[in-house]
Amino acid sequence: MLRRLTAALSLLAALAAQPAAAACDAPDLLSTMSAGERDRLAAMAAEIPYGDGILWRADKDGHRIILAGTMHLPDPRSDALFTHLARVMHGSDLALFEMTRTEEAEMREVLTAEPERMLVTDGPDLEARLDAETWAALSAAAEARGIPPAFAARVEPWFLVLTLSAPPCLPPDGGDGGLDHRLMDRATAEGIEVRALEPWDTLLRIVAEADDSQELDMLRLSLQPPEMQQQLFNATLELYFDERIGEIMALTALSAEMSPGIDLEEALAVNAAAEEALLYGRNEDWLPHIIAAGEANAKTFVAVGAAHLPGERGVLRGLEAAGWTVTPPP
């Protein structure tokens, strides 16, 4: 989802400025945490089903689904992982991704022709709706990503929330798409059918259904200090390549406690709403498609963002509830 959002918003940002770039060279948040905080993080992650691992298989009646938790951003450490996942994907009858290059092209075409789909065209802009301190922080964060404040004031808050969740050092277009693009290109080259799990405009639907006041709360909480944001981003990458996905999910809650000046109760409520919209609701929409594909093919490969797999409402638990036997591959 982050890759989709950054690519979409870069179409708009490119109208006015070239994004500034800084190296993501801050220490990761894990290295700055106390021993007690790290112990608590591990304990929180231990409560999350299927929290360790990024590659799983589900079997039922001679049919097999291979599920890979991906990262939508480029990283040189993904080379070896790509080689392994491509080997596992080999021989699949079908490969499912959140969104394929076909949907991405449609998104670019429509949003380039109709940028107003991502803008607030009626009523007061964000500068008028936010207090002066929050607007100043938002203006600085937008400028750091090459988005003029006057333009950001008219962007739908949800889009800004997701854009600001990545540090300014991230390439404005999200890079090359990371593992997802490489895997779908390999699948196409091998003659494996590639399909999307959802339409290209899913994010627009989520935005349209969002509560206005909740959007503003999310926007306020997304304005973390730049150093904290880079540390959290780097910690997420470290945990991903260590295959500790449950800790990534737990870190979201724990980092709210570590952020200065944040109302913890409000932060947890906002995080829960974001997870409902971006993770759990989409998981529920995907599961019928994944199960139908699994039942129709001998071997189905599924690659989605790693956070979609674990948890009580994750894709793996959903397959388990549908009678599939879920295990890590040997």
Rank of each mutant, 00 (worst) to 15 (best):
L11K: 11
E98V: 02
V155M: 05
I65H: 00
L183F: 05
E227F: 01
L264S: 05
A187C: 14
R313E: 00
G175M: 01
C24S: 08
P329M: 04
L204T: 02
D122N: 13
S78C: 02
D212H: 12
D263K: 02
E103M: 14
E312S: 14
A196W: 02
D173N: 08
L130E: 08
W200C: 09
A208G: 13
L197M: 10
L279A: 01
A35C: 01
R182V: 10
T6N: 10
A95N: 13
G281Q: 08
L160P: 00
E47S: 08
W56Y: 11
A7C: 03
P115G: 14
M89R: 13
M33S: 11
D185V: 04
H289C: 06
D93I: 10
V326M: 03
E133H: 07
A144C: 03
M258S: 02
A210W: 04
E116Q: 06
A14M: 09
A17R: 11
L138A: 05
I262T: 14
P167K: 07
E276C: 06
A273L: 12
A23H: 05
L164M: 02
I262A: 09
P49V: 03
E104L: 15
A307H: 06
N297F: 05
P172W: 11
M228P: 05
E284R: 15
D79V: 12
R205W: 06
R129Q: 01
E243C: 13
L164C: 06
S259V: 08
E312G: 15
E143L: 09
I54A: 13
D52W: 07
A321C: 09
L67P: 08
L197Y: 00
V194F: 12
P171V: 05
A298T: 05
N234T: 08
V270S: 10
E103L: 03
I262L: 07
A21G: 03
E47W: 03
T83N: 08
S222F: 10
T100V: 13
L15H: 13
A128P: 10
E106C: 13
G53Y: 03
A95L: 06
M89F: 06
P49T: 04
A210V: 02
P288S: 12
V207K: 06
E143C: 01
E265A: 14
R87L: 09
Y50M: 01
Q224A: 15
R3L: 14
Y50I: 07
P149F: 01
L268V: 14
I192G: 10
R101C: 05
K60V: 00
G318F: 00
P310H: 11
T102E: 15
A140F: 03
G51V: 08
W324K: 12
M1P: 14
T325R: 15
